[in-house]
């Protein structure tokens, strides 16, 4: 506390720079296989998706499984800005994220009154509706897809991911984030403590949707083509698995979950059925034996590298 820069943040910064430099270096020297490059960008996309879903599901305790819908909105709006209006990439990404946020706000307003599995199923329905709307819109290519030039580089994807994590973390570790957490912990008590629960649920939902939209925009501007089928509820489940695996409520857990699942998927890409069967078994076993995920609500930190006394500062600062 008090100290704004501590050992922990310095270590994290060094780690982040190192990861960036190693990958950027190998791209520069042209020794990075295209498959690995693709996987790395996908890791970035899924980290943004998982951390933003965690804000809704893990931090605020509102169970949403329609994240692919927001991703789709971000992807298509960003693609439209680039392809139809020849807008710059940054503008496209912001427009996509903003559109997803608006959708999040509008869908959150009525549905966030629902609890638990009812909310889950409503968001799933919403995600599917979004997909079907794009499927039936010939302006964006319908079922055959929408071609978008590839302009996203490792630098873009990486730093946008870092920025997303920082912003979401800053939110969580503020009084506004605590308000969200209090809703997860006990909604009635939160209400009676003067927390406008509706406002904070919608806020978390909107912020989560914003970053899902950003991830969608990155996806659209990297993969050459976007198709409605990509954004089916299976994608939402993929993101959910990452969040659950890492631990609902743990941001670093989501990052970990996204990295592990994306890499495992890439490794098993030749055997898609096996990938999903393994995911399924993992999910079931996890829920039975460790329902809080790998990290629970705790944050993974590098503080064990530092002094012992830093323990509190790193987890609670």
């Amino acid at each position: 506390m008090g100290k704004r820069i501590n050992r922990q943040s310095v270590l994290t910064l060094v780690g982040v720079l190192l990861v960036y430099a190693i990958v950027q270096g190998s791209i520069f020297m042209d020794i990075l296989p295209p498959f690995v490059a693709l996987t790395l960008i996908q890791v970035c996309i899924f980290i943004i998706l998982a951390t933003s879903l965690n804000l809704i599901n893990g931090i605020t305790g509102q169970f949403s499984i329609g994240h692919a819908g927001f991703m789709a909105i971000g992807a298509y709006v960003a693609a439209i800005v680039v392809v139809k209006f020849h807008g710059p990439l940054l503008l496209a990404l912001i427009a996509g994220a903003a559109a997803a946020a608006v959708a999040g706000f509008l869908i959150g307003l009525p549905t966030l009154r629902l609890k638990g599995d009812y909310l889950a199923i409503a968001t799933l329905g919403f995600g599917e509706i979004v997909r079907i709307v794009f499927l039936n819109t010939s302006y964006v290519g319908g079922a055959s897809g929408f071609s978008v030039p590839k302009t996203i580089t490792w630098t873009w994807a990486f730093w946008l991911t870092v920025l997303s994590i920082i912003i979401i973390r800053n939110f969580i570790k503020s009084t506004h984030g605590r308000a969200c957490i209090s809703i997860r912990e006990n909604e009635i008590a939160a209400d009676v403590m003067g927390i406008n629960t509706t406002k904070y649920k919608i806020m978390a939902f909107t912020i989560g949707a914003f970053f899902a939209g950003l991830a969608g925009g990155i996806y659209a501007n990297y993969l050459y083509i976007i198709q409605p089928l990509t954004f089916s509820f299976l994608k939402s489940f993929d993101i959910l698995v990452m969040v659950v695996l890492g631990g609902l409520g743990s941001l670093t857990g989501s990052v970990l979950g996204a990295v592990v699942m994306t890499v495992v998927s890439a490794a098993l890409s030749g055997w898609p059925e096996w990938r999903l069967v393994i995911t399924a078994v993992l999910l079931i076993v996890m829920m039975i034996f460790r329902p809080k995920g790998l990290l629970g609500t705790k944050e993974f930190s590098l503080s064990f590298l530092g002094k012992k006394g830093d323990k509190n500062a790193s987890s609670k600062d």
Partner: peptide, 21 residues
């Protein structure tokens, strides 16, 4: 209930893709 719901999703995946195998 959420843990049960996630498990149910897992079982669903298992049947679908296990079925494919």
């Amino acid at each position: 209930r959420i843990a049960s719901l996630i498990t149910a999703i897992g079982v669903s995946f298992f049947l679908e893709y296990g079925g494919m195998l």
